[in-house]
Design a protein around this nucleic acid. Structure first.
Lengths: 240, 240
DNA sequence: CGGTTGGTTGATATTATTCAATGGTCGTGG
DNA sequence: CCACGACCATTGAATAATATCAACCAACCG
């Protein structure tokens, strides 16, 4: 589908955590809490270029990652090659939480922009934390959050039309970025191609184009140069 | 939407577990393992009639249940009242696992047939098991399984047509029942109304009717009297 | 400069919905 | 036993939503 060659550069920086804005949230907070001291838990920093695969279905990456910068998409493919994007991964998101339960990935994760991540070795993590209820609860939290996200996407795909899906998709991304402090008022970074949005929402790129054009003409949003601004929330919600 | 009156009968049978076919699987096995002895963990047996709500979004049922008999559906509703069935619950399934993370339900669970269940009080369960890694891992397992199910449904809704969705839905149910020993060869109980199937797959009841009719005419399945038989797996898969 | 990627637009085709009518099944009460 | 109502399934015709096909444009990059 796209010939990338898995050449992520790995930087052996033993602790970028102190400067990381996600050190106090999600998985990182728990891991750092459980393995205190300077060298909480061995990890590897790394990066991928836009469009590279982080891992593919069937692979066993053996590590769980936290996105530090950039966006990625987790997707599944039908036997006849159609793609369904299961979730959009934003900075601060955990990638590969599923690998704790089954070492072999069933989904593909692909970088949508250049990304930087930090990775924990699953075996080590399990060895040191398997019996730590705090750690396991963190996994429950991660899984539960992403299940809720899948379920609300399910409602979108099953029972809402194209315009409603796109609006609720935009709002979801908007809120997630805002919570992480990555929004600038009503403006968020929005590097997604229409094709990805289409594959996330069960639509075609052409149809996504039409609807986004309509939203723009209506004056509900501005979307240029990888930035999206919500100009009028009322108008945006007018057909949801 | 439907005037039911929550009149579940509660039978104070302190231990139906010894005769329960699900005592060695899923949540029950873990709870029994953690709280050994005759009275492993206080629980309540109960029943609902077909169509009754087990709980509604916004309620805090305060207990987690295991379905012993009968089928149920977990659904969400859009603001304009459309229903999306998130999952079909079969005998042996855990109902309300989500309530461990947030006490207030965000989904509705409704009995599709008369059901019997057995319920654990969440507070008690948490008090005795919160720090038991085995218990928490069981939650990870439950959540993870249902997330995978949501995700594969997501692929159906996003990227497959009506016929493909219906076939894969039938096969999913077939496999789940078979795993639990509730199938009789190629025949399974199938008490689902077309309207429920439609709401699970993002279709209309009318369209479900057409497609099932087509599957019957083609000789792929037999479906009468609440029983479904797969007559020809090849034919069934011919448009998937 | 030419190739590639991403986006827009129009014409047309397909898929699924909506509306509407009809018949079957099942339980309940006379 | 039959009549009744509630629920469920089937079918046809008309319509709406979305996909497909195809052309074109703009931006970007080596």
């Amino acid at each position: 589908m796209d010939g990338d060659n898995e050449t992520q550069k790995r930087i052996a920086s033993s602790d970028g955590c102190s400067s990381c804005s996600f050190r106090n949230s999600g998985l990182c907070a728990v891991v750092i809490g459980i393995n205190p001291g300077t060298n909480h838990c061995r990890k590897i920093d790394g990066a991928f270029r836009a469009r590279q695969h982080v891992y593919r279905a069937g692979e066993a990456p053996g590590r769980i990652m936290v996105l530090r910068e950039g966006w990625a998409a987790k997707s599944a493919f039908t036997p006849d090659g159609k793609r369904q994007v299961l979730s959009i991964l934003l900075p601060g998101d955990t990638v590969g939480g599923e690998l704790v339960m089954r070492s072999e990935a069933r989904t593909h994760v692909q970088a949508l922009t250049p990304i930087k991540y930090c990775a924990f070795d699953i075996d080590e993590l399990m060895a040191s934390s398997k019996h730590e209820p705090k750690f396991v609860w963190a996994l429950v939290g991660l899984c539960s959050t992403s299940r809720e996200a899948s379920e609300s996407r399910l409602v979108d795909l099953g029972r809402r039309n194209a315009a409603q899906r796109i609006v609720s998709f935009i709002l979801e991304v908007f809120e997630r970025l805002t919570k992480r402090g990555l929004a600038d008022g009503a403006t968020i970074p929005f590097p997604l191609r229409q094709h990805i949005i289409a594959d996330a929402l069960g639509l075609t790129q052409v149809h996504v184009s039409r609807i986004i054009t309509a939203l723009r003409k209506r004056g509900a949003i501005r979307l240029t140069g990888g930035k999206l601004t919500i100009l009028d929330m009322g108008l945006l919600l007018s057909d949801v």
